[in-house]
Design a protein around this nucleic acid. Structure first.
Lengths: 138, 138
DNA sequence: TGGAATTTGGACATCAAGATCTGATTCTCG
DNA sequence: CGAGAATCAGATCTTGATGTCCAAATTCCA
């Protein structure tokens, strides 16, 4: 449904939002989010390029959020690493096919839009303040 | 967003719903849906296993819908070839992580559910009767 | 009645892309 | 200068997508 890369990016961003003081090296983020460190490093680089996190090298370096958690939607994050693609044009050749396939792709795009909407309307801050609402299974 | 396989399956099913008389060999379906024939053959085999289409070998053989179009939802089709996976349990280890990751996955599953809902509430028949509603771009 | 033509059913082989790990390089703080 | 960290370039592994071939079933016709 959503790429592994996007899942990892979301976990890392939630962790960074949870711990806004100071920078966190990839090893620490990997440990807390249970993401393979080698790969997470690459994912974080993409997030840096997308300006969603900022990085700092050297001793006491690491990663931190590039913007306040309230201004970072889940959609920003997902699109930063593996963008959700809307269906804008009919994937088949144009006019010569029946219009039912167009109807199909119209519905398809509606579904994607609905999915995308959930991501657009939720920020990292929303997740933080919702703490306790969803109790983890024991 | 949705696997290539599922996209192909949907196209083929729409074609079969459009042409309910007689059976259609994979070559004809491939031609009308612009799906690579070799692969489509495999996809159709999966649809047969899922009881969504019935097949017949030999001369004049081919594929046809396994149920009336009004009783085939898009979700049935997608789940027949590459199921949509809901997030039922937290993908991380259990109790020792913060509950914010749980909140994340809760939202994630809501988004998937919303996507899934679009598919569940649309049948092949819905697509057919909607003909003309969405004009293909010229 | 039997064989040729057609078509599905399966088993492999190939190809591309995503996911993962490793090592060398560059930066920065103390 | 030296240790800790990001950065970057490859190498590897897995999986989904795709193509190819042959066997099994079915129809049709001589």
């Amino acid at each position: 449904m959503i790429s592994q890369t996007a899942e990892y990016a979301l976990r890392a961003m939630v962790f960074l939002a949870e711990n806004p003081e100071g920078a966190h090296p990839v090893s620490r983020i990997a440990q807390h989010t249970q993401v393979p460190a080698g790969y997470l490093s690459k994912v974080l680089q993409n997030l840096v390029k997308a300006k969603l996190v900022v990085s700092q090298r050297g001793l006491k370096g690491g990663f931190r959020l590039g913007r306040p958690a309230a201004e970072l939607s889940l959609l920003d994050i997902v699109n930063g690493v593996s963008p959700i693609e809307r269906i804008t044009a009919c994937p088949l050749g144009l006019a010569h096919h029946s219009s039912r396939l167009c109807a199909l792709h119209h519905r398809l795009d509606e579904a994607i839009g609905s999915f995308e909407g959930c991501f657009r309307t939720t920020t990292l801050a929303d997740l933080l303040e919702g703490q306790g609402t969803f109790t983890p299974p024991a």
